[in-house]
């Protein structure tokens, strides 16, 4: 989705707000941007609710205890790597905290760029480990089209989430770039940083849900 546009404060220019940027466009009030982001994240939440409830419905229909259903294609389905993903979950969640620390640093007038970079790196690590896991499961015979609805839903749900994480990492790197080259974010004004943060926390929270539902339920 158009997160880049969404968080780029200079794209928005509500005439009622007086402050102007270097193009002479008036800048949108940070509060308005935050509200917009939150409304947008509500719809994202519904997107994931749709996917998760699809998964739950399919499982309920097959009988909850009867899972994973290893009737399909006669293959023995691999067990979920709960430990590795557990560690991965910790990595992703900690990146949220690091990002928060970066925001506090900026609010105090510091650059915070190293913390921003660290948050991005943690996110990238998460994606990396997730890729390794996908490859392993693929080798063991589980894929979008293998293992029936079990494989389908596992890869679709984690895939949707993974795409969101990737976008998030790119957004954070973009914030990092802005901060290093232009020192865009100041204690007074850090609209993009704040909204990327909202998005990033949201993505992390969704992951915690997915981890519980896909790996432990």
């Amino acid at each position: 989705m158009n997160n880049a546009a969404f968080n780029n404060a200079s794209l928005f220019h509500a005439p009622t707000v007086q402050e102007a940027d270097h193009h002479g466009h008036p800048k949108t009030d940070p509060k308005i941007c935050r509200l917009g982001t939150i409304v947008f994240l509500c719809s994202e939440a519904l997107l994931f609710s749709g996917l998760i409830s699809a998964y739950l419905v399919v499982r309920a229909a097959g009988g909850f205890s009867n899972w994973p259903p290893n009737f399909h294609d006669g293959i023995e389905l691999p067990a979920m790597p709960r430990l590795l993903t557990g560690i991965n979950t910790v990595i992703l969640v900690s990146s949220s905290f690091v990002y928060h620390a970066a925001e506090s640093a900026v609010k105090k007038g510091k650059s915070g760029s190293s913390l921003i970079l660290l948050a991005a790196m943690l996110g990238a690590t998460f994606v990396g480990i997730q890729c390794v896991e996908w490859t392993n499961l693929y080798r063991e015979g589980l894929w979008f089209n293998k293992g029936g609805v079990y494989g389908s839903s596992f890869f679709t749900l984690t895939g949707f989430h993974g795409a969101h994480v990737c976008i998030g990492v790119l957004l954070i790197l973009w914030c990092f770039y802005l901060q290093v080259t232009r020192r865009t974010f100041t204690p007074q004004r850090h609209v993009a940083l704040e909204n990327v943060g909202l998005y990033w926390h949201f993505v992390d929270v969704v992951w915690v849900f997915l981890y519980v539902i896909l790996y432990w339920l």
Binding site: N2, A5, F6, L11, F12, H13, A14, P15, T16, T28, I32, G36
Partner: peptide
């Protein structure tokens, strides 16, 4: 004067 996010 306009929408909150005209570009959007």
């Amino acid at each position: 004067g306009d929408m909150a996010f005209p570009a959007l």
